[in-house]
């Protein structure tokens, strides 16, 4: 009897704990927008990357390429945040904004050699491995898309935002929806449109209709992302 009580308490507790945890976890909103995140410095992406306004340069953006600051994206699976040194490198020479509160904050951190505690805006579950480097290599370097376009597939129209906000759900279904778009690959595994290199892992089945051209189904190996 004693054993039964102890045992059922344990199980009931386990259920409640897991239910509670599940209820608390954020679910994707209907419009796929992530939560608005307050950052220690309200970084104006629009001022840096936005469209240049020849009539009033003080209002428009500077059309800086995403990869000028986010240099790690093309070299690592993680995009990372640019080092403070990068911000200071330019802002040291921009006298006109040095007295702005945000820039003052920046230089305070630089002088104290204290990193800024940014909040993470795009987070994936720990069991998903997304590789920035591969996507940049393919879309920017192989296919010649601009950084703003390629990065924008997932990160949205950052050039018109101040601090970034998540624009897409970043769920597995959402990833797969892109990978499932018409990617023409030969059944032999040789790529036709300079795409879909993941077929070296597992060849797609040939359809009877078009034996050499088949519609790719995205990386069909779970291990590609879940390793």
């Amino acid at each position: 009897m004693y054993r039964f009580i102890r045992f059922s308490t344990l199980l009931v507790g386990l259920f409640i704990a897991i239910q509670g945890y599940a209820a608390e976890a954020p679910l994707t909103t209907a419009d796929d927008l992530g939560p608005a995140v307050e950052q220690p410095i309200e970084f104006p992406h629009n001022r840096h990357a936005g469209k240049h306004d020849p009539s009033d340069p003080s209002k428009g953006g500077m059309e800086i390429d995403c990869q000028y600051c986010h240099t790690y994206a093309r070299r690592s699976s993680i995009a990372g945040i640019p080092p403070l040194q990068k911000c200071v490198g330019c802002h040291n020479n921009i006298e006109s904004v040095k007295d702005k509160p945000r820039i003052k904050k920046l230089f305070e951190a630089w002088e104290a050699k204290k990193p800024i505690q940014w909040k993470k805006v795009h987070d994936l579950p720990d069991f998903v491995r997304f590789n920035h480097e591969r996507h940049i290599k393919r879309f920017v370097e192989q296919q010649g898309h601009t950084s703003q376009e390629a990065c924008g597939y997932c990160h949205g129209d950052v050039k018109n935002m101040t601090v970034a906000r998540r624009q897409k759900s970043l769920s597995m279904g959402w990833c797969a929806s892109c990978h499932e778009k018409a990617h023409t690959v030969a059944a032999s595994g040789v790529d036709v449109g300079k795409q879909a290199y993941w077929y070296t892992f597992q060849k797609p089945a040939t359809t009877a209709k078009v034996p050499e051209d088949i519609k790719a189904k995205g990386p069909n190996d779970c291990w590609q992302c879940h390793k």
Binding site: I18, G34, P82, W110, W118, P125, D126
Partner: peptide
């Protein structure tokens, strides 16, 4: 109960860059 449950921490986790 675990369906839809993720470890995503948008806006909660800090991401710290290098100073130099």
């Amino acid at each position: 109960s675990g369906c839809g449950n993720t470890s995503v921490q948008d806006g909660k986790e800090t991401v710290v860059s290098y100073v130099e």
